[in-house]
Design a protein around this nucleic acid. Sequence first.
DNA 1: CGTGATCTTGAAAATTTTCAAATAGAGTGG
DNA 2: CCACTCTATTTGAAAATTTTCAAGATCACG
Lengths: 228, 228
Amino acid sequence: MALDCAHCPVRESAACAVLTEEERGALARAGRRQTLQKGETLFAAGDDAAGFATLTSGALKVTSFDEAGQERILALVHPAGFVGEMFAPFARHDVVALAPSELCIFAARDIEAAIDAHPALAKALLRRSQEDLHASRHLLAISNPAASVKSRVAAFLYSMAETASHSPCHPATQFDLPLTRGEMAGLLGTTIESVSRSLTALERDGLVTRNGARGISLSDPARLLDAA
Amino acid sequence: MALDCAHCPVRESAACAVLTEEERGALARAGRRQTLQKGETLFAAGDDAAGFATLTSGALKVTSFDEAGQERILALVHPAGFVGEMFAPFARHDVVALAPSELCIFAARDIEAAIDAHPALAKALLRRSQEDLHASRHLLAISNPAASVKSRVAAFLYSMAETASHSPCHPATQFDLPLTRGEMAGLLGTTIESVSRSLTALERDGLVTRNGARGISLSDPARLLDAA
DNA sequence: CGTGATCTTGAAAATTTTCAAATAGAGTGG
DNA sequence: CCACTCTATTTGAAAATTTTCAAGATCACG
């Protein structure tokens, strides 16, 4: 399906927002729209012709598998996020939909041509890449094995509260987790059971209220940050 | 001290290599050379006027501290690497020399002007940022708390063997660790003692030979990757 | 309302950390 | 050049955390 930027929910915030109408139109003609069901794979590690994509709705995970076949989630991608390994000859990680998702996908050569043709796009992608780098380092910090599982879960909940919030400075006090227990375990480097026990403990401490398996309420999100 | 690109050891590989002689000269006049002793801080978290730097020799670490004051190493920077948080209003992490180091440093506004003036520079920085992102995700994968400390140490040694090698595809079989046990622990999210015990165990398994505290020999580096 | 999947809880087993002490190394001043 | 001292590393044993294995409890949905 061709792209229709006029109705794109992330037209203000995605990297392509820096282009003029005409430039964006030209890029849009090169790309196409794709829908993914929960669990479907966008790119698989080893693909040598993987392209690039901007997520317009839904959520993705970037994952790797260790020798034992254990999945580790390396990144979450939210709407307006951009995925694809620029300058790498093939994809090094799997990218899978966490929820029903819509994307604009582009062939590698089209993105490269657009970068060369539109300096503003290169700069916008640089900005986004730096944000991804920061997010990756943040995940590295909150998944520190030296910290207890409980504090890792608490730090993750705080991050999710920030992500769920639409105001930039204040975390949301109520939201639904986009991940299963197993995915949270894969992100934090622990087990389903330990995540579950940590949530129970945080609830017992009065830091969190659970509404079903996915719903989270936080009366004072900041207190999560100094949870043991 | 002013910059002298003609004798720069990374003039072929750093981001500025994509500039013409004249462009690079102009940028060089805006920057200056700085030397750091081991342990000295280049940028500190919270600095609001942190700039940017290309490392020409030595090694740096990018670190954060958790609430308990525990250091976590988020990244290692090698020669030709570029540090500085573009698009962020202040530095979010500390950057400290692991060894005597030399750098070219630039003010934020000069780099921003150069990005706008030279599209090739924006593209080169985008490439480098993507490499940093990949390195960060690789660290996330090898420091997975779900894996045993021994396998994390083994994966780290393999990474260091790749870094130490000057041929792109084959890891070095002999090299010196640039990190103390404490720094390795901070990188892998464990303790000094556990790192030490893991090295002893890997040596007992015949995967590694130690020469003093820092020297490492690997008869078959690839075997490290499936070390339990 | 089943039914399968996801989540929670319990108790034993395993790993890792902590605390304590011994050893090895690097640098210094005699 | 050697003894000394300070730091970094290794090793040991107990304590703590986490994982594993095994059931239950809940939830989403057809």
